[in-house]
Simulated assay, not measured.
Amino acid sequence: MTMPNGNGNGNGALNGAVVAVAGAAGPAGRATLLRLAEAGATVVAADADATRLAEAVDAARYAHGGATVIGDTVDLLDLDAAREWATRTEKEFGRLDGVVHLVGGWRGSASFAETDLADWELLEKLLIRTVQHTTLAFQDALQRSDRGRYVLISAAGASKPTAGNAAYAASKAAAEAWTLALGDAFRKAAKAEGAAAPTSAAVILVVKALVHEAMRAERPNAKFAGFTDVTELAEAIAAIWERPAEEVNGTRQWLTEKP
């Protein structure tokens, strides 16, 4: 993965960009808000947890004085609400250059036979439905951008499911397929317009799992082998804008060893 050319001075490909971050209140979201704000982007963050979202937004604003970082409580399980969020954001800022999908969730079981299909019902909403709604809501705006990016964070388990993670792996695999279909839509739209290459891209960043400071503090002796630190993930997300859309569109970018 190529790291961003920018050094935090707002002169890189994200300077002046408008980026929406879905699922922004967790550790990965906080790191991403900080990195995008540092790169000079206007960041519109959304999460179901209004209190944690406000804390994440305030932290990004405080770290980067003058940065425009706003929070929105959006029900991404409601397609109309997602579309209204996209329309409102583009209208307010005049453009929309990216969506980073960080909505997560995990459920597992001790064995395949013990899989609880209630876990699938939950994960289908969190990991698939929110991807469907954000892609459908933001596609047109991203296609209008000269640097549109849709970035999905996925898991290595989608490519090599384990017995106890059937529901989770299947949900992630479905989300990946949906995102790759968006990438094909970007490619076909560019071709239909007679463009030499698309200016928008749908990209999947694959991790084994994520780790952050609080996890390390709780388990100081743990190795977290193969895990991606949330700050490294944020760097990888920002790097997507530094590469040509044609190069990254419809690709999986591995941040951990392939299974």
Rank of each mutant, 00 (worst) to 15 (best):
V43C: 05
V44S: 06
A45W: 01
A46S: 15
D47C: 05
D47G: 03
D47S: 09
D49H: 07
D49T: 03
A50R: 08
A50T: 02
T51E: 12
A54I: 02
A54R: 07
E55N: 09
V57D: 01
A59M: 05
A59P: 06
A59C: 05
A60S: 10
R61D: 05
Y62D: 15
A63V: 07
G65W: 09
G65F: 13
G66A: 08
G66S: 05
A67C: 11
T68L: 14
D72C: 15
T73L: 11
D75C: 07
L76W: 13
L76N: 11
L77N: 11
D78S: 13
D80G: 13
A81W: 12
A81L: 10
E84Y: 13
A86N: 13
A86F: 12
R88D: 15
R88W: 12
T89K: 11
E90D: 14
K91C: 13
G94T: 11
L96N: 11
D97E: 09
D97K: 07
H101V: 03
L102D: 04
R107H: 11
S111H: 02
S111M: 03
S111V: 03
E114L: 11
T115A: 06
L117R: 02
A118I: 01
D119T: 00
D119H: 06
W120C: 01
W120G: 02
E121Q: 06
E121S: 10
L122N: 00
L123A: 02
L123Y: 01
E124I: 00
E124F: 06
K125H: 10
L126R: 01
L127C: 01
I128R: 03
R129F: 03
T130I: 03
V131I: 07
V131Y: 03
V131C: 06
V131N: 08
T134A: 09
L136Q: 15
L136G: 15
F138D: 08
D140V: 09
L142E: 02
Q143T: 12
R147P: 01
G148A: 03
Y150T: 00
